[in-house]
Design a binder for these strands. Structure first.
Lengths: 138, 138
DNA sequence: TCCTAACTTGGACTTCGTCTAAGTCAACAC
DNA sequence: GTGTTGACTTAGACGAAGTCCAAGTTAGGA
């Protein structure tokens, strides 16, 4: 995420304080915030930022490939800034905690041609589920 | 899905016409309806069935393990009656069409212990994405 | 410094889903 | 067959997440 602002400027982005704050909030490893959480953290730094701008900016970051959208449970989408290193997600069924994980092998390779139904398959997302150490019984 | 009604009765379900209609609508291969689509089809057979009952019944079927909930895109959840045979999903990025697919190997095995962060990992869901024959250019 | 297209804002609106209180009925007992 | 009862269903209000729009503001080039 470090040089994100530079990359965005290079793509013709107008660098407003709102966009800067959203990009700063979305920084780090294992960050998977909802739009509302991003808005709450952004508000702490820039009190008048609106929800619409947060949604707009997140949508633009996703379209530019700088941020991944993670739809894990049919509730609010989460935004993952770690878009430049391939990874999958491990989610706690108890508390909803999310970790980035790196399985070995390419999941795409496991889908034989006969099972592709003529699709041009380009990506595979894997979601692992289980209980985290805090939610595990005993 | 064939003997679903029998299984449900065996579990103490009261077999109402509404539940029967919802179960009938959710029958077949590659069926992935949203709750609203289920409601629309159920209404065709039983005009006075309410949305709340469709949601209740779908939730119960999911809790009983007879139907899978598929959250593919952060929009409406889809309901997949093919719960008794392990499978994954292939989704068209163009039109949203969904197919059940059967990759080989166990995706769970690809996640090394060092990448499990102490979680008791129990399941892996894979979503393949690409363009279906109708949406493919040329 | 000025100008203007791009950006932001607040609030209304949509979609998807949940909840509740009142009414209905499947299944069991007789 | 009839009665009883708790489980089920209903309509509509409500809530959460996200989109849209017209009006106002501003970053960055001239």
């Amino acid at each position: 995420m470090s040089d994100l602002l530079g990359r965005l400027r290079g793509r013709g982005w107008r660098l407003t304080s709102q966009r800067r704050v959203v990009a700063e909030v979305l920084d780090g490893e294992h960050v998977h915030l909802t739009a509302d959480e991003v808005h709450a953290r952004a508000t702490a730094r820039l009190p008048e930022i609106s929800r619409a701008t947060v949604y707009n900016t997140l949508g633009e970051l996703v379209a530019l490939g700088e941020v991944l959208e993670v739809a894990t449970d049919g509730r609010a989408k989460r935004y993952d800034p770690n878009a430049h290193r391939a990874h999958q997600h491990l989610i706690c069924s108890g508390c909803g905690a999310i970790r980035d994980v790196h399985p070995h092998g390419d999941p795409l390779a496991a889908l034989p041609a006969a099972e592709r139904f003529g699709f041009a398959v380009t990506a595979a997302e894997v979601t692992y589920r289980g209980l985290c150490p805090n939610c595990r019984p005993s």
